[in-house]
């Protein structure tokens, strides 16, 4: 039996080796947390309860990547969704996504609803944290309300169906649009509306 100090070193070495060898293609969970569930649920749905659905992208990865037009990041192989229940009925789903802005993370929160006999669509989008130069424009209703009603098949391209928040915030606007697109496509492909 190894002495305690050696055992700890051994475990640490083992951990270091495992961490170094784990390929990034292994399922890794989303980095983005949902910071203010209570306030957001009240704002989006007027109240309700929520639970967490953590879904692995798995075999849908290629299809999702094809639909969004680019590879998923290594932190996007498992995604979190929060179905919201109000008065016993599922009224929608919240999801969050961490996009890479010019100077830091842009954390986007979306509310998705499932209209009867129609594809899921965006009810609301908000930015819970960012570090961009044109923060107020990026967080403005003028910019964010453009996403309302968008579906997974919408283009969600800045310069086409989405106008940038500010001429100096084109990259930030693209990050937000891509986050919304990724979450909508994943929601549809992973059948989150039924989970």
């Amino acid at each position: 039996m190894l002495p305690k100090g050696y055992r700890r070193s051994y475990v640490a070495l083992l951990l270091a080796t495992v961490l170094a060898l784990v390929p990034l293609s292994t399922a890794l969970a989303s980095l983005c947390v949902w910071r203010n569930p209570d306030a957001d649920i009240k704002e989006f749905f007027g109240g309700g309860k929520y639970r967490t659905v953590l879904e692995r992208v798995g075999s849908k990865k290629t299809k999702i990547e094809k639909r969004i037009g680019q590879k998923l990041d290594s932190d996007e192989l498992q995604l979190k969704f929060w179905p919201v229940i109000k008065d016993g009925q599922r009224v929608g789903t919240v999801a969050s996504h961490l996009g890479k802005g010019d100077y830091g993370a842009i954390e986007v929160v979306v509310a998705i609803v499932d209209p009867p006999d129609a594809p899921a669509k965006i009810k609301a989008v908000k930015i819970q944290r960012d570090r961009e130069r044109y923060r107020s424009a990026l967080r403005s209703a003028t910019f964010l309300d453009q996403f309302k009603g968008k579906q997974a098949n919408s283009k969600l391209q800045v310069g086409e169906d989405i106008k940038e928040a500010h001429p100096g915030a084109v990259k930030g606007s693209k990050v937000v649009a891509l986050s919304v697109k990724k979450l909508l496509v994943a929601y549809e492909e992973l059948n989150i509306g039924t989970k």
Binding site: R8, V11, A12, L15, K49, Y50, R51, T52, I85
Partner: peptide, 20 residues
């Protein structure tokens, strides 16, 4: 991890283990 009843999460747990 979280513990819930399918509609609501009753509790969230966070445990931290030190290896070295």
């Amino acid at each position: 991890f979280s513990v819930g009843d399918g509609e609501k999460e009753w509790a969230n747990f966070a445990l931290q283990g030190v290896l070295a």
